[in-house]
Structures are given as structure tokens and as C-alpha cells.
């Protein structure tokens, strides 16, 4: 058993007086796929935003790929470059073409030569099947295409870990499938993934483990089959009965 790539110990986080995350303990091994689910406001998004320090935690330790995250962390950019993230609202850069969205960070953060970055970007765009849209602008694409571009953009940094923050929640039902397909093929490629989602079908198909959160706490953490077959806590049972 290898060392965990993400290790969270006794982590607490407050927004003002309100405690969003309570005593979180989580270990993720490399190449595992974790699905985080739970009702809205339960702190799922905040949890994964803490993993690349888009949110700062106040207590406890978070170690990502051997680097501890705290105020003293100097090269937070270096750690973020290793951790890709996909957002609910896509957050593509609207002033740049699809191709430029994908090459911006490799060129300026990783100092990759422009030509190499473009080849890499086209390659990644091809994997999510929008290489024919490379010269369009985000505003000209559908939501599903934009989200796939956002996945390709994150992958262009060749991250070790991918975080997905409700990637399909802002999409029309028709477009959800194309994004999930892209994520499934990414999962099959062996990427370490933490996915916040309500798509239980996706969880059943690719997740190694499912985490259920409520009111800032991890209520249940179990193997996927175990989680769906016989959930232990009553809260989980209630949640599953409502969304399945």
C-alpha cells in the first residue's frame, strides 16, 4: 500500500462564526477515484477547494503530494499546478480562444514552448472531442462543450490530481452525458480524482470510494458497492432514498 497522495487530518474551517468543516479526516491514495456527495450546504465544495487552497483552513493539516498547506507554504502555485480543478460554472477565460485557454497556463506557468503547448492542448481537446472548436471563443460553445474544454484545460497542466466541483450541475440534462463520458474515460486512464457530484450513476461506475457529508462532517466513507448496498448511517439512507 502506497503513501496517500492527499492526507487531511483533524481539519476545521470557519466562515466567520459559522463552522463549515468539522474535524475532517481523509486519506486518498494515488489513482483512486473518490466521489463526495451530500445535501447542499454540507461543505463538499469547501472541502475540495481546501485541497488546492482556494479556501484556507484554520485548524488541522492538509498534505498534498508531500507538501503541507498552510500560511507558510511558499510555492502554493507549484502545488496548484499539480492539482487540476473543474468548476461548476466552467470558468473559462472568455477573452481567450479555446486553444488559448488551454495553452495559457502551460506556456506561462510551466514555461512550455508555445508549439509544444499547442500540440498538447489539441491532443487533450481531441480526447474530449472538441478539437474542431479550438479557435472559437467560450461564448460560442454550448455548456457541455465549455465544461469539456475546462477539463481539457486542467489536463493540459498534466496534474497528478483532478478535483471536480459539481461539474454537471449547471448543465442541461442532454449535455451531462457528454461531460460524464469525458470524466469516465479520464478515470479509466488512471487519474486520481475527487468528484463532488450528485450523479450516482457516475459514482457507481467509476468510484472506488464514496464519501457522504452532512453539516460539515464526513458521515460515512465506504467502498462504492458497500455504500450503495448497505449504508450504515440513517442520514445516508435517507439521502440515498431521496435521490435514487
Amino acid at each position: 500500500m502506497s503513501d496517500p497522495i492527499i492526507k487531511i487530518q483533524n481539519m476545521n474551517k470557519w466562515f466567520g462564526d459559522f463552522q463549515v468543516l468539522k474535524n475532517i479526516n481523509l486519506e486518498v491514495e494515488a489513482n483512486k477515484k473518490i466521489v463526495v456527495c451530500g445535501p447542499s450546504g454540507s461543505g463538499k465544495s469547501t472541502l475540495i477547494r481546501c485541497i488546492n487552497r482556494l479556501e484556507e483552513h484554520q485548524e488541522g493539516d492538509i498534505v498534498v503530494d508531500g507538501n503541507e498547506l498552510s500560511e507558510k507554504t511558499k510555492d502554493i502555485e507549484k502545488i496548484r499546478a499539480e492539482v487540476g480543478m473543474v468548476f461548476q460554472q466552467f470558468n473559462l477565460f472568455p477573452h481567450l480562444s479555446i486553444l488559448d485557454n488551454c495553452t495559457l497556463a502551460p506556456i506561462w506557468v510551466k514555461k512550455m514552448p508555445k508549439k509544444e503547448a499547442q500540440e498538447l492542448a489539441l491532443d487533450q481537446l481531441k480526447k474530449v472531442q472538441i478539437d474542431d472548436q479550438a479557435n472559437k471563443f467560450p461564448g460560442q460553445l454550448s455548456g457541455g462543450q465549455q465544461q469539456r474544454c475546462a477539463i481539457a484545460r486542467a489536463l493540459c497542466m498534466q496534474p497528478k490530481i483532478m478535483l471536480f466541483d459539481e461539474p454537471t450541475s449547471a448543465l442541461d440534462p442532454e449535455m451531462i452525458k457528454e461531460v460524464l463520458d469525458a470524466m469516465v474515460s479520464l478515470a479509466k486512464g488512471g487519474m486520481t480524482m475527487i468528484v463532488v457530484t450528485h450523479e450516482m450513476g457516475f459514482a457507481k461506475e467509476v468510484a472506488d470510494e464514496v464519501i457522504f457529508m452532512d453539516e460539515g462532517m464526513i458521515i460515512e466513507k465506504a467502498d462504492t458497492k458497500e455504500f450503495f448496498a448497505n449504508p450504515k448511517s440513517d442520514r445516508t439512507k435517507l439521502f440515498l432514498s431521496q435521490i435514487l
Partner: peptide, 8 residues
């Protein structure tokens, strides 16, 4: 967020 998450 997006810019930060790309390591900028």
C-alpha cells in the same frame, strides 16, 4: 479561482 487553480 480558475486562474489560481491553474497555478498562476
Amino acid at each position: 479561482d480558475a486562474a489560481k487553480s491553474l497555478g498562476m
